[in-house]
Design a protein around this nucleic acid. Structure first.
Lengths: 205, 205
DNA sequence: CAGAGTACGTACCGATCGGTAACATTGTCA
DNA sequence: TGACAATGTTACCGATCGGTACGTACTCTG
């Protein structure tokens, strides 16, 4: 890792600490919005912690609401990636893929300081359907529901849509319960419960 | 319904529109906090809608945080009452009591404009464990978990604690999903899923 | 080396936040 | 009638909110 020359900056070699103000803002906002809540964090705190200034924020983002929407779209992207990554070890086996994610979530939602799903939290923080935060959150949840339906159908469940909704309830329940119970979260039984619902659906085929 | 005499005011006969400023504030705060979110509502808006003034609020409540805690304690009280009321038709039948609440919730969480559980929402809005709103919310959830465990044990479930947590996940999932999906909420399958988990637990006895 | 364009900071805006001091008004009781 | 408690009125506090006008430093290009 040698110091790069001034005359030839390569984008890749400064990836550790983003040099662009917009990137630092994005990263800082992601962290603060997720951990502390969106309404709880003002733009002042974001720019302070990012080591930049307010005008830099408003040059890169139209408004705080737009920054929030950006954060949530980013969160959604990471979620989809992670959801896919957890099941990557089981190609063409939707049931195993689903259980892999569920088992992952059961652990993650039972760690101290867990803060749930950023998208779910956003929908709750912004109940107004007209607010971008609400909209992005809802769209992501609809996509997840659809994905679960596809998987349940693919695994040959008798009542795929119903099973998918049941699993969605368990998953969302794990998101929020993790925040209230910490290490002893009810989310620890998520895997067992998901298996019971799935088995019941596959048995009654 | 005759007009009461001035000399003998009865507490019960003015219940419709509370005359005391503190009561009006309490009722208005309950409504606004629940529907719009706690952080979204300022004390100014509360007193305006309640038709009172700010000093009246601060004569009755120490601070906004204390008013929030009061709101949540009130919410918890109503929740317990309602939870008991739904099962009141089935004395000495914990399974039927639980299913009665679950069936009630499935309908309520699938109505347009549903705003979930005020306590769950508060825990999400105030992730800081030191904040009274977080604490009251968590305490209420712990009590619910304990209640579910008792009921699952009483109905003779093989793994009562595990089943209780599974049902808690379904219930909490219904609270939050109702806000994202409205009428077509996954919460509509809550009853069917709860029954499957319960039957599985009772069968393996 | 000049000049353009980009990236950023200093300082400030009006509005609203939670909260309070001082005083006037009302209705209820003795 | 007169005391008391409850409420309203008005005006204000410092802090923070989201947002912006304007000046400055750097870098790339001619």
């Amino acid at each position: 890792m040698s110091k790069r020359t001034k005359s030839m900056p390569e984008p890749a070699d400064v990836a550790e600490t983003p040099r662009r103000a917009a990137d630092r803002i994005r990263d800082t906002a992601f962290d603060l919005f997720y951990r502390e809540g969106i309404r709880a964090i003002g733009v002042e705190e974001i720019v302070n912690r990012a080591g930049v200034t307010k005008p830099s924020l408003y040059r890169a983002f139209e408004s705080k609401d737009e920054l929030i929407a950006e954060y949530l779209r980013d969160y959604d992207r990471r979620f989809r990636d992670n959801f896919a990554a957890q099941g990557a070890g089981h190609p063409d086996d939707p049931k195993a893929q689903l259980l892999a994610y569920v088992d992952y979530l059961a652990v993650r939602a039972s760690t101290e300081g867990y803060r749930g799903c950023g998208l779910t939290n956003a929908v709750i923080e912004y109940p107004d359907p007209a607010h971008p935060a609400h909209q992005v959150g809802v769209e992501s949840k609809q996509a997840l529901r659809e994905r679960l339906r596809e998987m349940c159908h693919a695994m040959g469940a008798a009542d795929a849509d119903e099973l998918a909704d049941g699993l969605l309830l368990l998953i969302e329940g794990s998101y929020v319960s993790g925040q209230a119970f910490g290490e002893r979260s009810p989310a620890r039984v998520l895997g067992a419960m998901a298996r019971r619902l799935i088995e019941a659906s596959l048995a009654s085929r």
